[in-house]
Design a protein around this nucleic acid. Structure first.
Lengths: 196, 196
DNA sequence: TTGCATGATATACTCGGTATACAGGAGGTT
DNA sequence: AACCTCCTGTATACCGAGTATATCATGCAA
């Protein structure tokens, strides 16, 4: 997803060779996101082609690369500008619901409940992981776990709201529905208060 | 993202040809997610190769396809089983924070604040869109908007929590920050135009 | 008639991502 | 010694998602 920028960030601290970058990448992400070695080489190739990185000869038989001025600039750009503004990318789950709601013979609310159950399970798994590892406190790991938890919570809330929306839509009245949009949310939704 | 399944869902209601499916797809997603025509044909090719659809000859000069038994089965599978359990996919924003936190000379909390500001702006844009269009009540559009809002809210919360985490981590004792995070550009994140 | 927009299909190409091939060296065993 | 195996390091093949573009035909307006 932005592997190239990550590679640049590593090269900014000094020359490196391919495999080394794989290991470093995985170390920095708390060992959670494995990076295929092949991707390192192809990505390095593209970075070199675009002039963000330069081949720097062999060091102990390893082909090392260095970052260029352009590379530094584009890295600074990445850190400096928010990376959000992706046009609302296709989300498989959203797509699934929309398609389901348009497909005759498919019980949308059943689909929603199924997805909800799975999300809740995942959520429990994540929180269990969190409490299990709360002692050895690896920040990267915690930050990543948080992101998974928050994202999943958001999905659950969205599923609930959507089920209600579909239920009250004249076009989706057909099926007899189960036990209502399920129980309320887990924790306080509330708009983020900017702490500190 | 799961374009193939969407195509199958449409074919289940009757034979169709390529371009028709593009239009139908966009109609069903509330005209929000444009689908490249080329992708329809390549995807149809793969579906045919895998035996989920079959070429059904020409109808009025248009090459129409039909769904097969295998296709129906696999579609049912999609609706029946939750689609969540993706291994924690790489998320650009999460990756960015982790990388930033490991890069010397980068002020993580500045990056976080920059991202936060952008997210809040996006959120306001979404909610404005929501209030603007609350009358004509198109369920697909509302469901999609909700998903964007909920997701963005989750990101904001996560950013806040993460900032606190990094702040209290001994390894990230905030170094004096340079001019690092440049101000975001004025260019707005583009929301897809509604309908046509 | 020319020319242009549009309907319809198809292909080229990029990129992210996975799996796999290939080459060399370090040990260990017999 | 030869052999096998494991490990490091590099590179390529391949696939799917996605975008841009090429190619026809046809209807139609000037």
């Amino acid at each position: 997803m932005s592997v190239p920028m990550s590679l640049l960030a590593m090269l900014e601290e000094g020359p490196m060779y391919g495999l080394e970058m794989k290991h470093e990448f995985e170390r920095r992400t708390g060992g959670v996101w494995p990076l295929n070695v092949g991707q390192v080489y192809t990505t390095l190739g593209r970075l070199e082609r675009d002039g963000l990185v330069a081949f720097d000869g062999d060091r102990d038989g390893n082909k090392t690369y260095v970052i260029t001025a352009d590379g530094r600039a584009s890295l600074e750009d990445w850190f400096g500008h928010p990376v959000q503004r992706e046009s609302p990318s296709r989300d498989e789950l959203v797509l699934k619901l929309l398609v389901a709601s348009n497909a005759p013979g498919v019980d949308v609310s059943a689909v929603i409940r199924s997805e909800r159950r799975a999300s809740i399970e995942q959520l429990q798994q994540y929180t269990r992981l969190k409490t299990d590892s709360s002692t050895d406190a690896d920040v990267e790991w915690m930050v990543l776990l948080d992101s998974l938890i928050f994202k999943t919570e958001a999905i659950v809330r969205w599923l609930d709201v959507s089920e209600a929306r579909f239920a009250s839509d004249p076009r989706h009245v057909s099926q007899p529905k189960g036990p209502m949009p399920a129980e309320p949310l887990l924790d306080q939704p509330s708009m983020p208060e900017r702490g500190k």
